[in-house]
Design a protein around this nucleic acid. Structure first.
Lengths: 248, 248
DNA sequence: CGTGGAATTGATTACGTTCAATAGATGTGG
DNA sequence: CCACATCTATTGAACGTAATCAATTCCACG
């Protein structure tokens, strides 16, 4: 086994863990994923992995660090529409859509695997189980988007922010990045605001309110939820839409 | 050819038209879709086709009339997260997810084909091209959701409503339901509000404003856009996210 | 230390909600 | 075909959440 292939095998681990939420994968299937990796890149913080309108050669698989999908508004601001954590395949879209309708950029410095778009394409045709796993993953992304939409449209800002904190805690935990009820939230308040359609100022005030109410601690990028039950109730958070097997 | 099979063939027409936006289908593939239909139901206005938490036996394909996805909020209101037009397969989710995370109900009286979940399931494994077409369709749904999220989070109410009108015009046209720049919008202002996270009152005021500005006419469920260019500019509407081949 | 990004605070404004009432449209049964 | 019931659209007034503008403080890092 070469050095590369060992690296690559390790790199797909988070993805495999995630896909196994849908169904256990065979060794041969795991190998197909490993073989699709072209190389691994270190990417700086706040760097575009892919921009709207493009049709890049290869896909991006998050290995380490966080990224986000975002769309630009006419007024120059941008809106974050999803967070991408280790194990998330950023842009399977390009295998099926004509071009990207949104952009993706890193939120932290990150390690990203470049995946052969062509091989993934072939794999969709030749390995139904993997194809289904990717399809499943896309449906989960869609479910998250739906919940965010409801969040933005129907809940007051406090609840919205509490809600996304709950979600990110569970997702971090599912990715093996959380301990107990705390996790690293490596984003600025501005970015958190851009997620919920709020200004930095208001986001800040709401975080303070959540702190005052004893629901969270948030300092130095460590977000801690004090009383999960209470937090969940306050956030109107029902985790079913994440379709994780692990309940909590 | 039996009476049923003729009916069924006609019923899948809008779906095939839609999937052909991704790739032309073979006759045999079309036949697979026809064969998956179990029966056709007439459904009354405002009737749930499927509720959150369920895992029904068969899927629903819209043939005639409109439906919507929606989620309930804790305060009793509900938020519409998608419109379903003829040709839309409502709930392919149930073939891959454990259970529905949202509900679907008709907005008008409707004709709905019940589709064998089992057959669609088999088809995903055995017919890669159809599987890809469904995957593609799901990615488009996701793109629409993203646009709605940006809409809700980042644009003022006037623009939001203008935006969704633009979208629904193009979608109606793609489904062969529009003539020129007008189409039947068979929903109440309340429902339009539930889509954009606005109250009926405010939705009403904004529709009046759009009318006063000469952008639209909307009466007796007929929505007409007067000056597409101007409307599009006002709505900040860039149709690329719909991934329709037909540009306009 | 000094510098720039991030967080925090204050004051003011505005968009959209809420509550409440009326008018118009649609439908149903006698 | 009318009368009544109900749903939908419309209008008004008061309130409140979140945006905007503008400083200032905090902090990490070179």
């Amino acid at each position: 086994m070469t050095k590369d292939s060992r690296h690559f095998a390790k790199a797909v681990d988070p993805l495999i863990t995630k896909l196994c939420h849908y169904a256990a994968l065979e060794e041969s299937e795991k190998q197909l994923l490993i073989d699709a990796i072209v190389r691994i890149d270190e990417v700086k913080k706040r760097h575009d992995l892919i921009s709207a309108g493009q049709r890049p050669e290869h896909l991006h698989l998050m290995i380490d660090g966080w990224a986000c999908r975002y769309k630009l508004l006419e007024n120059g601001r941008h809106h974050i529409t999803a967070y991408l954590l280790p194990g998330d395949l950023c842009d399977i879209h390009v295998t099926l859509l004509d071009r990207m309708d949104h952009s993706i950029r890193t939120l932290t410095s990150a390690k990203v695997a470049l995946v052969s778009s062509e091989k993934i394409n072939r794999l969709l045709d030749q390995c139904p189980r993997l194809a289904r796993a990717f399809f499943w993953s896309t449906l989960v992304d869609e479910a998250v988007l739906r919940e965010w939409l409801v969040n933005a449209g129907g809940r007051p800002a406090e609840v919205r922010i509490a809600h996304v904190i709950c979600e990110l805690l569970l997702r971090s935990r599912a990715a093996g990045l959380a301990e107990d009820d705390s996790f690293i939230l490596p984003i600025t308040q501005e970015e958190l605001g851009e997620t919920m359609g709020l200004t930095v100022v208001h986001t800040n005030r709401i975080l303070q309110k959540l702190r005052r109410n004893g629901l969270i601690t948030f300092a130095k990028q460590r977000m801690e939820v004090h009383d999960w039950k209470r937090m969940q109730a306050f956030a109107e958070f029902a985790p079913d839409y994440l379709h994780l097997n692990i309940q909590r």
